[in-house]
Design a protein around this nucleic acid. Structure first.
Length: 356
DNA sequence: CACGCGTGGAC
DNA sequence: TGTCCAAGCGT
């Protein structure tokens, strides 16, 4: 596909308005891949410090492949979607060990790497290798659905094919990298989900949704995110030496395989009395509650209310509890502001706490 | 195909 | 305060 008026306008706008990002100044497939994995479902401002930290620790794919999974998880901690970090490490080992550090240079082969799906494969193919593969992400869905007033449900498989074809048809072969970045940047800066800045848009003359005065009607998305509320009642056990008691989480739930405090979960809010009533009536618990703190965390998919019960004076009862669960704890943590469970993984690395 | 996965910003 | 959603992927 040769250039076309829409792409030309897009690219001209991009040249004047693009944000500066470290991974935009390179053709290094490793850096581009790393940035793309980090930026999956993640805003640039949130991912940037992680990208810098990963590059500082692991300047090339061999360094990343040589790291332990614990090191990788520790650097990733706080960013969310932790399977990305595990797949990142797996893919680094594949590229380092099976491909002598050379990233796959075709869309099909990139797709085989763990953690690399259709979007990321197209992005790397185009940004690093100049191949004419159109990217299709949330921004592109939004921009294209408005541009052509397409009301296909973007959460459907049909839409993926339809939008892929349109995106591919719009992509100028010779400038695929610039065009791809430009359309995503337009979605991120101008063609916003809620209040699109149509006055500033270089494509407004071509935009069907704009002509119909209903840009906010696009894209059409039927699948709604269900928000569940789970109530977690944590028990913070601390012995005389100040050591804390941690538990590794299940592999098939939120925060898979990360560490948090032992807890009681409920599908409804419980009063302090109810929490104690539901728990087995153990001496260490009934006698031990002397301090209580509460912290609330919410996000899109899941609403979790954390209640932390800090057991200060557990004494011998605490030790027998640990013994009962074959647990030992050593070293010291001072917990002033109690962390979210995700932060516990960091403590584990840092303080070498033992678990059961 | 529908769902789960995380955190933080915007409104 | 609630809702949406952001350079998606794996199952």
């Amino acid at each position: 596909m040769p250039s076309n008026p829409i792409s030309a306008a897009l690219i001209a706008w991009f040249a004047a308005n693009k944000r500066s990002m470290p991974w935009r100044n390179t053709k290094d497939a490793y850096k581009i891949w790393l940035s793309e994995i980090i930026l999956q479902q993640t805003r640039v401002a949130q991912g940037m410090p992680y990208y810098e930290r990963f590059i500082a620790h692991f300047p090339d794919v061999h360094a990343l492949a040589a790291a332990s999974e614990g090191e990788v998880m520790r650097l990733w901690q706080g960013l969310g979607y932790y399977s990305r970090a595990r797949n990142l490490h797996k893919a680094a080992k594949i590229v380092s060990q099976e491909r002598a550090g050379e990233f796959p240079n075709s869309y099909e082969d990139l797709l085989k790497l763990p953690g690399v799906g259709s979007y990321t494969a197209a992005a790397i193919a185009s940004f690093a290798f100049g191949l004419p593969t159109a990217v299709l992400d949330g921004n592109v869905y939004r921009v294209l659905s408005r541009l052509f007033a397409i009301d296909t449900d973007i959460s459907s498989g049909k839409a993926k094919k339809e939008f892929t074809n349109i995106a591919q048809g719009l992509l100028p072969t010779s400038e695929s990298a610039t065009h791809n970045q430009a359309i995503m940047e337009l979605g991120a800066l101008v063609c916003l989900p809620k209040n699109p800045k149509c006055q500033q848009c270089p494509l407004s003359d071509y935009c069907e949704a704009r002509r119909l005065s209903k840009p906010q009607a696009y894209p059409v998305k039927k699948r709604k995110i269900k928000v569940k509320t789970r109530y977690f009642y944590y028990f913070i056990f601390q012995n005389e030496a100040g050591s804390l008691y941690l538990k590794k989480r299940d592999t098939s739930d939120i925060w898979a395989s990360l560490y948090d405090f032992p807890m009681l979960e409920s599908d409804k809010s419980l009063s302090l009395e109810e929490v104690f009533a539901v728990l087995p009536s153990q001496d260490w618990l009934l006698k031990g509650s002397s301090d209580y703190q509460k912290h609330v965390l919410t996000h899109q998919h899941l609403q979790v209310r954390f209640s932390y019960f800090k057991i200060k004076d557990t004494g011998s009862a605490w030790q027998s509890f640990l013994q009962q669960h074959k647990a030992q704890a050593f070293d010291t943590i001072t917990v002033e502001a109690l962390p979210k469970p995700i932060l516990i993984a960091n403590y584990l690395e840092k303080w070498q706490l033992s678990l059961y």
